[in-house]
Amino acid sequence: MFEARLPQGQILKKLIEAVRELVTDANFECKPSGLSLQAMDSSHVSLVSLLMRADGFDPYQCDRNRTLGINLRTLASVLKCSSNDDIITIRAEDDGDSAILIFESPSSDRLSEFDLKLVDIDNEQLVIPDTQYDAVVRMPSAEFQRIVRDMQILGDSVTIACSKDGVKFSANGEIGSGSVRLKQSSAVDSEDDAVTVDLQQAVSLTFALRYLSLFSKAAPLSPTVTLSFSKDVPLLVEFRIADMGHLRFYLAPKIDE
């Protein structure tokens, strides 16, 4: 049997809200070490990779590897039936064709159970090569969300340029052009508010804002986001999930025609 109890159930709610518009169906790979998911969007432009380690659950039981194919829109609807402070348990019997979701109120006086039919998903796994990135930018996730939203006023694409001074987002379109420049923070009260640029070499890449906007829906998961860039390789956008794992998005750059 597979059973994973997540005391902070709202993490799962935020996760599914973050990916449901990008990915329709996904296979949750359940292993003794934890739960993972990898899926491409329907256009095969971006990739989502989720990891939730077993030690983030309490308890976590996985006797043998299981693949749970789940429609994320259905899952999102079911998760809306839980409260933010509910403890959420995912369970799957060995021979079952469904995943069971249990929502437990903090005082355990309300228990709801939903049985979700599993779906068969033909999902090819991609191997993500290890990359030494030219630039790694860390910033508040709310700032990332705001910049992406602001740049969308101007056009479909954003050019992100990292240098020793900081990071510059710029866009141009029919109505005009604009940019947002973030300097590296010198002194901040909280690390979560800082902007840092770890630079090997200056790099400038162009990306589709539509996808960055979808990625930024993960902002409620984590106060900070990390953007990793290298010339001619996909951008890595990473949100850490408490102390238990991460939600990563990869986006292929745009190239000049």
Partner: peptide, 14 residues
């Protein structure tokens, strides 16, 4: 502005 490269161009199939 530019053409979109698919992600499968960078990550190979297992």
């Amino acid at each position: 502005a530019g053409s979109q490269v698919p992600i499968t161009h960078f990550f190979y199939r297992d």
